[in-house]
Structure formats: structure tokens, C-alpha cells
Amino acid sequence: MSEAGLLRMRLNGHPVVAPCEPARILLDLLRDDLHLTGTKRGCDLGTCGCCTVLVDGRPTLSCLTLARLADGHDVTTIEGISPPQGLSPVQRAFVESGATQCGFCTPGFIVTATALLRDHPHPSRAEIERAIAGNLCRCTGYTKIVEAIATAAKDGA
């Protein structure tokens, strides 16, 4: 790892230092090096959205992000979004509305939905549909996902 250096970032609120070569992809660093496996690898080409994380609060495709560019930044994964006990309002709404089936896309949707409701606490149905149109779900037909996000919004997530 002649090119390797140390990456320093805040990961889920805590400082992390990790060896990281320039060509390392953030998703691979999170999953394979740091064992944060909640972030999923679905297509690796930016299409499925399963790998969505927050970088400085911004939903980001971690499969299309060089890990080194997270140096000095805040990265939040699904593990960081989840409270130590219980579920966040968005997560609870996903469970109760049946918005998760196989669950593989779910962490990405939770991250996207959490950011959406932070910025737009009362989205319309059309706004929800548009906001999740970069996350692919093959199980639900999206119906219950949209319902869950609307429910979480109503409950003041």
C-alpha cells in the first residue's frame, strides 16, 4: 500500500482513523474494513441506492465516493441513524407499514427518508415519490414505502 495514507473522519459521531489507499471506495471501506455492514452493496454502480449514507448530512451513494474524499468529513451510516435502543420514527413506520420485505434496500431507503424529513418535514406524496426515485426496491412496489414515510412525517419524525 505505497499510496496508502490514513483517513480521518467522524463516523457516526465518533472519530475514526483508518488506513485507506486513494482508490478505496467508501462503501468498501465501511463494509469490508470497518465492518459496518448495514450499508448494502446492491449494484456497485450507483443505480440501486442500497449503499446510501450521509456525508455531512447529504445523502450520498457510497459506492461512487472515494473514501479519501470523506477525510475530514462527517459520515453517518444506517448504524448511526439507528438509536441505541429501539427504532427511529422512520424506522418504526417502515416496520409497522410493511415497507420492508426482503430488507436489502431498506437501509438505503431509511437514510434517504431520514434526510428528506429533516429537510422537508411535510412532504407531499409526489415529493416523497420523487425523493426516493434513486432507491430501487424490487419487493414492495414502493406503495408501503411511500406510506411509511408519510406516516413518519405525520408523526413528526
Binding site: 455492514t37 448495514g38 450499508t39 448494502k40 451510516t77 444506517i78 448504524e79 439507528s82 427504532l87 424506522q91 417502515f94 416496520v95 420492508t100 430488507g103 431498506t106 437501509p107 431509511i110
Partner: peptide, 9 residues
């Protein structure tokens, strides 16, 4: 298993 799926666990 919903709570495990929505938390990435």
C-alpha cells in the same frame, strides 16, 4: 425481523 432490517442489523 423488521426491526433488524430497518436498522441494518
Amino acid at each position: 425481523e423488521g426491526p433488524l432490517k430497518v436498522t441494518g442489523r
